[in-house]
């Protein structure tokens, strides 16, 4: 088990120099929403195949990290790379081009699962999973169909291939959404509070699927979550975010059992009491 202590907020590993060792890098990334400074000069690096959970109070900038990676938001400043390629390179005050070719290519390596599932409601579960492989990867319909079936089987929805999302429970929808993202064979998967919108009894099935992915694939996974026990169980590293800053990070047993930072302690006390 490698030590993760050297993954601190220092950015001495430049992404170009140590390409193979860094899947995701944020260097001096800054983002504000008006008065709300959600990311303050963030330096954050994730190794290939690493599973990182991001915890912290809401509004602390956790989700913004994922959204910048998915190019749903742009940073105000800083450099973000994925698998050695630049996704963002923003100088403060410079106008941002919404989308570059590089961005599109790099984005293909990333998949995302959303809090609100965001399935296409007019398409069946199967079609939801097939759409992107056919349209983006140019997979034949037969092949995409086979693969979609496998993936839906894997997430336990082999019986619901032809159901449309409104006929499925929240937990089932979220599992379809995971299958849909997996169909693009991403190197990096982003999970944005994927169980927060679910009824408590439906959370387990979704977490089971993510746990399977975490243990059986070498995908790099970044999870923003409020499921502390789950984060502790599956993560290689946990990052505590507060007020736009990674206040503490380390292996899960350290963060959850013996945190150094006061804010981490307060936060964990507050969430674990419930």
């Amino acid at each position: 088990m490698p030590s993760h202590g050297d993954h601190g907020a220092n950015a001495e590993t430049s992404s170009a120099a140590a390409q193979s060792d860094v899947m995701i890098s944020f260097d001096n990334v800054d983002k504000s929403w008006g008065e709300n400074h959600v990311l303050k000069k963030l330096n954050f690096h994730v190794k290939p195949a690493e599973k990182v959970s991001i915890i912290g109070p809401s509004g602390s900038g956790k989700t913004t990290i994922l959204r910048i990676l998915m190019t749903l938001e742009n940073p105000d400043e800083g450099v973000v790379t994925v698998d050695g390629d630049e996704l963002w390179n923003v100088e403060r005050g410079r106008r941002i081009r919404r989308e570059t070719k590089q961005m599109k290519l790099t984005r293909r390596k990333i998949g995302m699962v959303f809090q609100q599932f965001n399935l296409f409601p007019h398409l069946s579960a199967l079609q939801n999973v097939m759409e992107a492989p056919v349209r983006v990867l140019g997979m034949s319909k037969d092949e995409a169909h086979e693969r979609a079936k496998e993936l839906l089987d894997m997430v336990g929805l082999g019986e619901h291939l032809n159901h449309k999302p409104p006929k499925l429970s929240g937990g089932q929808q979220q599992r379809v959404a995971i299958a849909r993202a997996m169909a693009m064979r991403p190197k990096v998967m982003l999970f944005d509070e994927v169980t927060s919108a679910l009824d408590p009894e439906l959370v387990g099935d979704v977490l089971d699927v993510i746990r399977d992915l975490a243990t059986s694939t070498d995908m790099t996974m970044l999870l923003v979550t409020h499921e502390m026990r789950f984060a502790e169980e599956i993560s290689d590293r946990v990052v505590m975010f507060d007020n736009g800053v990674a206040v503490e990070q380390g292996p899960p047993h350290k963060i959850f059992k013996d945190p150094d930072n006061d804010r981490t302690r307060q936060f964990l006390r507050a969430v674990l009491e419930h």
């Binding site: 998915m70 190019t71 749903l72 599109k104 984005r107 293909r108 990333i110 998949g111 995302m112 959303f114 609100q116 599932f117 965001n118 399935l119 296409f120 759409e131 992107a132 349209r135 983006v136 959404a177 849909r180 993202a181 693009m184």
Partner: peptide
Amino acid sequence: GQWEAATALNL
């Protein structure tokens, strides 16, 4: 979210 999901899938 529909736009975002479509973006995430690179459609």
